Simulated scan of single mutants.
Amino acid sequence: MRFLLSLFLMATMGHLNLMAETDAKEYKTYVKNNYKVFYCTHEGVSVVVDPTEGGLFEPRISIINKSGHEIMFEPKDIRAYAYAIPGNTVKSTRYRVGTYLDHGGDASRLETDSLKIYTPKQYRKKQSRTNWWAMVLTEVVVAGVEQLGPQDDVTMMENALYRRDRTNEFEKAHDEALKRIDEGYWKANTIFDGSEHQGFIAIKPVKTTYLILDIPVDGEMFHFVVDSKKYDE
């Protein structure tokens, strides 16, 4: 992690691209829909981190195995970190390291915070709770607006039908969100030689520009510093 930090510090001074190369591996990027995708190939194994769809805190990770043997991959061993301003405990500003450095902050004192990565079960529960509150708040607002108008029998029946349709739409969206997690979230898998497996993970978000990911595959640690900026920024 110390060498990873040194590369970050050099990158902030314009000497390197923000890619964490902590060993002999070669880390690269390619462009997808105006945004960067991060990848590394080492000894027949390619790891790809794609934040272009789910965003920085829901990256899609692909592993392509051409190593000549099967690989058992455990996504629970992935670790995520964010660089942080030393001594700053305010969540809204703690991770604004660019501003800190621009104002003469000591780059060598930057800290790294470990970030929570949800398990599939935890993320499913979180999404269910988020969707439920969204439905409740929407109904509260709509009900308040409906009370402002006339409440004859026809209007009340129309409001009831609209409410039923909204509920059906919420339930459909909720089911689709949970299905996406059930089918797409990274789970433990054996990746056979000549095959590829991919899925996404969800990380508890913080206000940062860069995300550090340590992804262990086949006895090797792949280190990435990922951002969701456009490729020409």
Rank of each mutant, 00 (worst) to 15 (best):
D214I: 12
K125I: 02
V142E: 12
F3K: 04
D113C: 12
T190H: 06
E139K: 14
E176W: 00
S108G: 06
K28T: 03
K229V: 10
K229C: 06
G149L: 09
L7K: 13
T99L: 02
S67T: 12
A82P: 04
T93Y: 00
K121N: 07
I203W: 08
D182I: 05
E21F: 03
H103L: 15
S108Y: 14
V145I: 15
N65M: 14
L101P: 03
T155K: 07
Y39P: 00
D106M: 08
Q122H: 02
S62M: 15
I85Q: 05
G98Q: 11
G54Y: 08
L101T: 03
K32Q: 03
L5M: 08
T167I: 07
I181E: 11
A177V: 01
R109E: 15
D106V: 08
T190N: 07
D214S: 09
E111M: 05
L9V: 07
A177G: 00
G194F: 05
T208G: 11
V49P: 12
E183V: 11
I71K: 12
I191A: 10
V226F: 09
V142W: 08
S114Q: 12
E21I: 06
I78Q: 11
R96P: 01
L148C: 04
Y118S: 07
I63H: 14
V31S: 04
K28S: 09
R129A: 13
M72E: 14
S67I: 04
Y231P: 03
K204W: 04
L5K: 13
H69P: 06
V154W: 01
K125Y: 02
E233R: 14
V217A: 14
V206S: 08
Y35N: 00
P59C: 09
G55W: 10
I78F: 12
S46G: 13
T155R: 07
A11D: 12
V140H: 00
